[in-house]
Design a protein around this nucleic acid. Structure first.
Lengths: 337, 337
DNA sequence: CGCAGGGTTTACAGCGCTAGAAATCTGCTC
DNA sequence: GAGCAGATTTCTAGCGCTGTAAACCCTGCG
């Protein structure tokens, strides 16, 4: 049988509660006692029983992660990170998919009221500020582009990240730059891109802003195809607000005979964990996902403790990852035949 | 406060244990009582507290999934499926990475003995039959190519799947076929491919069998580069034992000026959830991962119940997914310039 | 030298559920 | 109509842990 608190207590010659106190880092424990207990724990290889702990503490040990879709590598990867981060807080993560539908997102928000979970991490796409009335006091933290005034948020500075992406394109000598993404100017990434162009005395003409109805490869391919059919002069580079879009854009470009990056450079965003055997490998912006996951869990714990925790919006870092798709010279030699 | 068993009991006018009996499907419950209880559960929206249940039942509610690496999309996707399947059995999945190292795999096997988990799903790469002595009575099920006599196994028929892949290449008119994968003939996929070639009066000459030390894009790229440098006449098609290898192979081919599938068709294996915006999209074999996950959990539950369960090796289905990389005519038009 | 006052430790009552054993209720036989 | 077997339900004791409150033990001061 695996050792229990009582076994540790007996071995250390103290009471059960003292062992519990040591484990939970309660104040007022003499160094001597602490050492005795720690030694006993070590010798017995004791590990607390989470079921019992959660039961006694009245928590369920479960948090929910709400994402649009799990087969989007960005969210799959985020989920993995969150699972790891949550484990440290003895939480396990129940993953729910919203398919980006408003109804599903509202439903999740409503579930906040049944006390079946200890907290929720939500990556909303269609939620509005006013929807948050649905919310109960349950610990909640939002991820993604949108920030809500009344709820904790963890994310990167999308505008700044997009700016550095465009900056990179400019630095590699491209001036005429198209932007793929966002059906509105609410899109921080588009905003950041546009601002950077403007700061360099350039513009984002309507023809070079390719709106999309989604962010997958298919959407990117369609948007670029539409552009290619429009007869507008080609851009020297394309900034896509997601890697998926970029993959589709590259496909469309190549199907039309354009070489990437030789004819057109393409930049993505997200650093989805695709195989680097892609051709060309994709230059992108890598949000610090591990940090996002860690801080999301930290936010939940903070809220769990306090009765009326103050709202915190946290900005985590991102990295520019230049790869082949924006290289000055492409890796693909002239084709035979 | 969320409803407890006692609340349901009060509402239905029966004892707590009766409600518990209904929930756990115990025999000897009158239809009338069952209906009363079910109604009460419904009205109150009762859901059992898993912590309490697990505590009382003496299980931990945790199973371990041991995979080589989680950033391999195949395993990420498998993990997701397993998490879903395990949820139905009130288990949550703790994911452990072995990096394909024998030591790490043995360590996991050893953990089987501390009763900290209810079961283990293992996808071993380097384990030997004899290592299983390490194993305790804990429910264990293996995934992957290797079958062990003494342990439950769930997987596809790799040889048959590889056979159908090669068959597909033959049917699209390719005769000279190379195989990338396996540093030994233990590899069922290589065996299946070779057998199919032989059955068609063809051979797998040593020059066309490209062994690899791993199964990622990098390994595929290196193997194909080495071949291209060898001066051997080109094959018309390449069958790779994983999609990742295939991505690398395609990259190497294209960097050398070969078009896929026009000059060389490439076939993968696994159907990793890559973006279909790849160019060309990858023809592959898709194992029924959902079924694998479901059956793995079922195996664990079966073993949990019995004291000396008989060993079951289960074969699940796979599908041939033809895409662009093996099409008769390629999607890439002649390049401009 | 006694006692206040703090730091430390212990006792004990649950958290919500399940597993026996015990109690009760049927319907049936004689 | 009593007696009995089997079906059905209730009683009771934990599962291993934490929170509260009370008990303990030491200083240091008067």
């Amino acid at each position: 049988m695996r050792p229990r608190l009582a076994d540790v207590a007996a071995r250390a010659g103290v009471s059960i509660k003292t062992v519990s106190n040591v484990i939970n880092d309660f104040p007022h424990i003499s160094t001597q006692t602490r050492e005795k207990v720690t030694a006993a724990i070590e010798e017995l290889g004791y590990r607390p029983n989470l079921s019992a702990r959660n039961l006694a503490k009245g928590r369920t040990g479960v948090i929910v992660l709400g994402v649009p879709r799990l087969d989007m590598p960005y969210f799959a990867s985020l989920a993995m990170q969150l699972i790891t981060a949550a484990e440290a807080a003895s939480w396990w993560v129940q993953i729910r998919q919203t398919r980006g539908e408003r109804a599903a997102e509202l439903e999740l928000l409503a579930e906040t009221r049944q006390s079946r979970i200890d907290g929720m991490v939500l990556s909303p796409l269609r939620l509005r500020e006013s929807d948050l009335a649905e919310r109960s006091g349950l610990p909640l933290v939002m991820l993604g582009e949108r920030r809500f005034a009344a709820v904790d948020h963890v994310g990167i500075d999308n505008a700044a990240a997009a700016a550095s992406a465009v900056q990179h394109l400019l630095e590699t000598g491209r001036r005429r730059i198209a932007v793929v993404g966002g059906p509105g100017r609410t899109d921080r990434r588009v905003v950041g891109a546009r601002a950077t162009l403007r700061a360099h005395g350039l513009d984002l003409p309507a023809a070079l802003h390719l709106p999309v109805r989604g962010v997958t490869g298919r959407h990117g391919e369609e948007a670029m195809k539409a552009f290619l059919g429009s007869g507008h002069p080609m851009p020297e580079a394309v900034f896509c607000v997601t890697d998926w879009l970029a993959m589709g854009v590259i496909r469309a470009l190549r199907l039309h005979g354009f070489a990437v990056p030789d004819d057109v450079a393409v930049m993505g965003f997200d650093d989805i964990p695709y195989d680097l055997a892609a051709l060309p490998t994709l230059s992108t912006i890598a949000p610090d996902r591990e940090e996002i996951a860690r801080l999301a869990v930290a936010s939940l714990r903070r809220q769990e403790g306090a009765t009326a925790p103050e709202v915190q919006h946290t900005v985590v870092g991102h990295r520019l990852v230049p790869r082949e798709s924006t290289a000055a010279t492409g890796p693909v030699p002239t084709t035979r035949r």
